[in-house]
């Protein structure tokens, strides 16, 4: 989790107090900490006395830190600095210094998503170093499972199967993390990856497509099983409450729906997308998918196929 050093907190307070009115500070806090945030309720100052920008900034920054939302606060004021608010421009002071302070903690500004991300060269944690326990977000999930896992273990032995699954894990990690996703769980023969930032559904779908391509080559070049290693993969999107306990995540509706889409409706060797995902994809990607097999399927599927000779 992001650790806010006292120097950085001070600079942030200074930036808010020098750049925004108390009302505007409260508005920012409402967006970032909780809707309807009231700075006066956090103080013992009587109604008849005005709250200064300095006081409001101090309280809001401290509350944002306590709520684990300091990065969200900085991202919000960075947007305010860039875009203004309701037609008025707000120039935020000390932004360069704040960014430097955050980067010194191993986080990088991602201009595409306009978020701070863990520097992937130093660490890659399942919550991107910024999600708070119980925080709900709309995630895109990529669920992957090895086809006929039990038979592979029975026929090839545990060691051979484990080698192949380790290879699969390397391939999947590469495809997922390249698109700022995170592997949330790996159960030996199956995995769950999550995407949150930017076009998260597109990221999850492209990671799934890339994984099928990697497996196509892996099966020809490195696979020692003597038969192709096949997966079923499905992408679904919906709300998930973050928890550091994976068991808690696995029980949630969106995760269960992703698992059902994969196990029940996805043909071996394919990637499917659910009806919640399909409309969010750009045409150029969506056109690569075709309706899933069977009259009941509402999924679209993609696989690697050759043209007929």
């Amino acid at each position: 989790m992001f650790k806010v050093r006292s120097n950085l907190a001070l600079v942030a307070k200074k930036s808010l107090s020098e750049s925004l009115t108390p009302d505007m500070i409260c508005r920012v806090a409402s967006d970032v900490i909780e809707p309807g945030y009231d700075v006066r309720a956090r103080t013992s100052i009587p109604e008849s006395f005005p709250v200064s920008s300095q006081l409001a900034a101090g309280i809001v920054v401290d509350d944002a830190i306590d709520a684990g939302r300091f990065l969200h606060l900085v991202e919000r004021i960075a947007r305010l600095d860039r875009e203004g608010f309701m037609g008025r421009s707000w120039r935020m002071a000390n932004m360069r210094e704040i960014f430097k302070g955050i980067e010194a903690e191993g986080y990088l500004w991602d201009a595409d998503t306009e978020h701070f991300m863990e520097d992937p060269r130093t660490r890659r944690t399942a919550n991107w170093g910024r999600l708070v326990e119980g925080e709900e977000n709309r995630f895109s999930l990529l669920r992957v499972d090895v086809v006929r896992n039990s038979r592979i273990v029975r026929e090839h032995g545990e060691a051979m199967a484990r080698d192949a699954y380790d290879d699969l894990r390397v391939l999947m990690t590469r495809c997922v993390e390249h698109r700022t996703g995170r592997i949330w769980s790996w159960e030996g023969d199956g995995a769950l990856a999550a995407f949150l930032f930017g076009h998260s559904t597109t990221g999850a779908v492209l990671a799934g497509m890339a994984l099928l391509h990697e497996l196509f080559l892996y099966n020809r070049i490195h696979n020692n099983l003597g038969e192709p290693l096949l997966i079923r993969a499905a992408v679904h999107t919906g709300p998930v409450r973050w928890s550091a306990t994976m068991g808690e995540i696995a029980k949630q509706e969106t995760v269960l729906e992703a698992m059902e889409a994969e196990s029940r409706w996805t043909p071996p060797g394919s990637l499917s997308v659910t009806p919640a995902v399909a409309p969010t994809l750009d045409r150029v990607i969506l056109d690569r998918f075709r309706p899933g097999p069977g009259d009941d399927s509402r999924l679209l599927v993609y696989d690697v196929r050759f043209c007929s000779p």
Binding site: L206, D282, R283, V304
Partner: peptide, 17 residues
Amino acid sequence: VLDRAIIGYEVFHLEIP
């Protein structure tokens, strides 16, 4: 050739195949 759709979209930012 395998990754053509992904490269077109991610690398060249094209909205067509």
